[in-house]
Design a protein around this nucleic acid. Structure first.
Lengths: 165, 165
DNA sequence: AAACTCTTTGCAAATGAGTTGCATTTATTG
DNA sequence: CAATAAATGCAACTCATTTGCAAAGAGTTT
């Protein structure tokens, strides 16, 4: 996340998307604007439970409306848990890193030429609406906590492993 | 998929990964090697049901072992359904296009500089194990069948839509 | 070939993210 | 302020994927 993104105006953002300013929407959008990393629906539910207490289903519906309104981006992971982040001008599209052990999602800086590269693909087929660049592996924390989070491995193959046929 | 990938030797591939050649593994690998596009677990189950009839759970376990052995890649989608494709030398990593309407996944050709670009990111953090580049939108078929697959839209906003705050 | 051991498979049941139907509440408009 | 449309909450559901456990296979040793 880009520092300073928290400055996005909640009410103006909702208005621009044509969404009425219900307390639930304000709460969800506030959580997203202040998030350091992309949030899952569960993350949002937790962060919002302090105040008015929102229903789980409502969170999903609000996220769907935000996505349709172009306010947020949705990020898919291998494990079926999706994450959400602001899609405002302070937070342009960038790659993400997903830890397959702790299942956290972190933002990566954009490569210098990434924007242009993405644009080329967009031009090749105007039906493209979103582009996601997704790295996976083990995050630093899980790498050091190796004992607790052992890397899953099958029985060691006879010859080499990971060789293309 | 790359034409000619079907030439991958099933038995040699399993052997190299240190996996015993059970009839179920051979069937799943055969389906993947001959697939024109990435397959979901359900796709594989369907294609394999002709012969020996494999249990759903077994397919998932076989796919997990193939992935751990570096034989296949797993591709995540927004809707929690994952796809799988060969990771052999005939099928180097490439971007994919996911249709949000019919939920099909298609392969895209690699951009000329993609390999280098990916390598740069890998070097930046050696923990990175996989890289996925994922486009979404509406496929050609769903675009023309617009009547049957209407694009979901919220009530039209007063001002402009999709404007960043 | 029987006995052992380890791996793989099948079945049933669970998990967990996300969705749908419907009644109720809240916003917005006239 | 009543009328109308949108948003929320609740319960129950779908569906991909996972887990526990017992039965079936494979490979090895005696």
């Amino acid at each position: 996340m880009v520092p300073g993104m928290g400055h996005c105006d909640i009410h103006a953002t909702l208005e621009r998307a044509g969404l009425s300013k219900t307390s639930q929407r304000v709460a969800v959008l506030t959580a997203l604007v202040h998030a350091e990393t992309p949030l899952s629906a569960r993350d949002i539910l937790e962060r919002v439970s302090g105040e008015g207490r929102i229903n789980r289903v409502t969170v999903y519906r609000i996220l769907a409306s935000f996505k349709a309104g172009g306010i947020i981006r949705e990020l898919a992971t291998d494990h079926g848990e999706n994450f959400f982040e602001m899609a405002c001008r302070h937070n342009p599209a960038h790659p993400h890193f997903y830890c397959r052990s702790c299942r956290s999602l972190a933002c990566l800086p954009s490569a210098g030429n990434q924007e242009r590269w993405i644009r080329e693909y967009r031009e090749a087929d105007e039906a493209i609406e979103t582009v996601a660049i997704h790295f996976t592996g083990l995050c630093r924390r899980c790498r050091s906590e190796n004992a607790g989070h052992p890397v899953r491995r099958l029985r060691g193959p006879r010859g080499d492993r990971r060789v293309s046929p």
